[in-house]
């Protein structure tokens, strides 16, 4: 399939659903399901009003902290788990448990532990993200070609240099994938956590849910989708730029 054709089909897919939504919206009315045309108008108002973007930026700042911490801890941890059976055996059960746990279920405990402020949100995002970051790094580290490690040994490469100059670069594509996966979950967790304590962007969505019209809430969802997809694409671009060898291999 050519890229143009693929793009056309993707756009058509979106257009068909938007059309169906428009029809459904006209039938059901604005307070059940606002039609895209109404959402579009409301969306411009929300943008001009500025509150949406300010809340979003505030929330994203805290999200980035939790996400960054998860990457800082999770990437080396996952790499170590992949290379050391001892560490894997010690840590893996916990990671498995964290990954399957619903963020919403953790909220009550975290509220008792951290209150409802800054620490609470960072902690929730951290826990929601770290499992994915660790597991992708772990699988990357396990999958490193033993032949390339033999080359390193053949040159008498020391332990630290082997980590720095061989394992880390070999892992890089996995770290980027882990970060992309983690980021999606970080943003989701941010919204969920904020909806419980009615602060930030999640709080805004929660409160708007009580309004008569569903148009603003759909607008907020559009924004968070755009942010999430945009951040993902940006991370991928960074990965392609820093690791051209990997992009080329994938393109084959």
């Amino acid at each position: 399939m050519t890229p143009t054709r693929k793009l056309m089909l993707q756009l058509s897919g979106i257009a068909i659903v938007l059309l169906m939504w428009e029809i459904a919206g006209r039938i059901m009315g604005e307070n059940l399901l606002a039609a895209p045309s109404i959402v579009a108008v409301t969306y411009v108002e929300l943008l001009l009003d500025g509150e949406m973007l300010i809340e979003l930026l505030n929330s994203l700042r805290q999200m980035i902290l939790g996400f960054g911490a998860a990457c800082l801890v999770g990437m080396p941890l996952g790499a170590l788990m992949g290379r050391s059976r001892l560490i894997d055996a010690l840590v893996h059960p916990w990671i498995s448990m964290i990954v399957v746990t619903s963020v919403a279920a953790l909220v009550p405990i975290f509220m008792m532990l951290f209150g409802t402020g800054f620490e609470f949100r960072v902690a929730i995002v951290f826990v929601a993200t770290i499992g994915y970051v660790v597991l992708t790094a772990y699988h990357g580290a396990r999958g490193i070609d033993p032949k390339i490690l033999d080359v390193a040994r053949s040159f008498g490469t020391g332990r630290i240099d082997t980590y720095r100059k061989v394992i880390l670069p070999a892992l890089f594509p996995y770290l980027i994938t882990g970060a992309r996966l983690g980021l999606v979950h970080a943003i989701r967790a941010m919204v969920v956590a904020e909806m419980f304590v009615i602060v930030g962007y999640g709080g805004l969505i929660f409160q708007t849910g009580l309004d008569l019209s569903t148009a603003p809430i759909l607008g907020y969802l559009v924004t968070i989708m755009v942010v999430s997809i945009g951040a993902n694409v940006a991370l991928q671009r960074v990965g392609d730029r820093v690791a051209p060898w990997y992009a080329a291999r994938m393109a084959r």
């Binding site: 032949k147 033999d150 040994r153 040159f155 061989v166 670069p169 070999a170 060898w245």
Partner: peptide
Amino acid sequence: VVGGEGRGMVFQSFDLFPWR
């Protein structure tokens, strides 16, 4: 003695570091 020490090895499947 692992690697080095006056020994240099050339591998069948080249095994270059793809990121270098």
